[in-house]
């Protein structure tokens, strides 16, 4: 019985959903060779014909003091363009698509995987979320709608209880209601509707939008099943 349980535990682990490819920093460093003629990065980097790329993530386009940007980049920055993994991905595929008339005479990186590697390399030289929690992400989230091996756990109250650990950091398991609302004994259907409303950002609250945004349908169902019966 114990061996079987251990096997099931191993199977559940083995079925972990894979994260989106985080990118290979070493490959990215090789790809950066083609950028080096104009852009410096790392300790002591300075502006050359292109701006240095330290602290790039989260920077407004044309946002570096002391570099003379083209009008096109200045307009893009004034229009709200900021450099993040998503915008860099679009930009690096074909710089001309995003800005015209700049000194950046680079044709772009067509291979999406190469762009992922390059972006992972560049990301190392911006703020570290361990020190500045609001710094840009370093990986892409995954859809927590789980694969079949874990879907077999649907409605498993144990799974709901495990997931509830993320809720009870703030929402008291004993049902306290000051500052943060109680979620115990919440009718199951209402719980599900509310979480999906946060997930789709129809319901406002940044923490809950973030938390619910990463819960799959089955996970929401498991949590709803757990909390509906939770007594003190």
């Amino acid at each position: 019985m114990r061996a079987l349980a251990a096997y099931l535990a191993a199977a559940a682990l083995a079925a972990l959903p894979a994260l989106a490819d985080p990118g290979d920093v070493e490959k990215g460093e090789k790809l950066f060779q083609q950028c080096k003629g104009c852009h410096q990065i790392g300790a002591g980097a300075t502006n050359r014909s292109g701006p240095h790329l330290n602290g790039l993530f989260g920077r407004k386009a044309a946002g570096l003091d002391g570099f003379r940007y083209s009008k096109s980049f200045q307009r893009a920055g004034a229009g709200g363009l900021e450099w993040h993994a998503e915008t860099l991905d679009v930009f690096l595929e074909n710089p001309r698509a995003m800005t015209s008339g700049t000194r950046m005479s680079f044709r772009g990186v067509k291979n999406p995987e190469d762009r992922t590697h390059l972006i992972a390399f560049l990301r190392q030289y911006s703020d570290d979320p361990a020190n500045i929690p609001e710094a840009d992400p370093t990986a892409q989230g995954i859809d927590h709608d789980l694969d079949p091996a874990i879907l077999a756990l649907v409605g498993d109250p144990e799974y709901g209880e495990y997931l509830s650990g993320e809720c009870t950091t703030c929402h008291q398991a004993a049902g306290g209601d000051d500052g943060i609302p109680s979620i115990t004994l919440w009718p199951e259907d209402q719980f599900v509707v509310a979480m999906h409303a946060y997930k789709s950002k129809q319901r406002n609250h940044p923490v809950m939008q973030m938390i619910a945004g990463r819960l799959g349908d089955e996970e929401i169902a498991a949590l709803a099943a757990y909390f509906k019966d939770l007594e003190n």
Partner: peptide, 29 residues
């Protein structure tokens, strides 16, 4: 890190008060 948020500068007093009350709820939790 895959996702996140941060309070905005210039938020209303109501939002900031609610954020503080939330932190008290979190502490109890």
């Amino acid at each position: 890190k895959v996702d996140g948020f941060i309070s905005k500068t210039g938020e209303s007093a109501d939002v900031r008060k609610a954020t503080y009350e939330e932190s008290e709820g979190w502490y109890a939790g």
